[in-house]
């Protein structure tokens, strides 16, 4: 009996190594965070506006896809990097983007949008990050493609670069438009 008990830590350790080894051996890139929500309908939410003069966002708005839903915040430095691209595709490629301002402060976000421009059709104010939790947001920025039937078609974690947009996001949007 005593002999067997001494093997318990080893057993746990082997289990741990196996579990940790799986993502490594699969070669999963940890920056690609898969979402449990891809292929599922948009979770219901209704957010007040973050900016004066720009409406808030609810699930009803975004289900009329294909649209992008972009989680961002004024305190997030990489969101600024992504912003130029968003601004460009909203103004020149006719992509509809809904913004969800994640864990932010209203004066901050007003100043930030004032500085960087507004690519968003509407911006919801997710002050405590509750809607972010429902969506499974890992960190901002995160961008979701919503299909015309209101299903999450793609999740993009982190700042989107021009290449990401051309190679990943744009083809999906175009496929959904057909």
């Amino acid at each position: 009996m005593k002999n067997k008990a001494a093997f318990i830590p080893l057993g746990f350790f082997v289990l741990l190594v196996v579990i940790v080894a799986i993502p490594l051996l699969k070669g999963t890139d940890p920056s690609v965070v898969p979402s449990a929500l891809v292929g599922k309908p948009v979770p219901s939410f209704d957010l007040p506006p973050a900016l004066a003069g720009v409406p808030g966002v609810s699930a009803k708005d975004v289900v009329k896809g294909p649209v992008l839903v972009n989680f961002f915040a004024s305190w997030c430095l990489t969101c600024g990097a992504e912003h130029k691209l968003l601004d460009h595709i909203a103004k020149n490629e006719g992509v509809t983007i809904y913004g969800i301002d994640y864990k932010d402060k209203k004066p901050d976000i007003a100043a930030w949008i004032g500085k960087h421009g507004n690519p968003y059709k509407a911006v919801g104010f997710d002050a405590d990050g509750r809607v972010g939790i429902d969506w499974g947001v890992y960190g901002v920025p995160e961008t979701y493609i919503i299909s015309p039937d209101g299903v999450i078609a793609l999740r993009f974690v982190g700042p989107m670069t021009d290449d990401d947009y051309i190679n990943t996001v744009k083809p999906r949007l175009e496929a959904l438009r057909k």
Partner: peptide, 16 residues
Amino acid sequence: TLYPVFLSALDAGSVS
């Protein structure tokens, strides 16, 4: 700390 790793190993989505 490791819960997110366990979930992703089991393909059960990701959480933080």
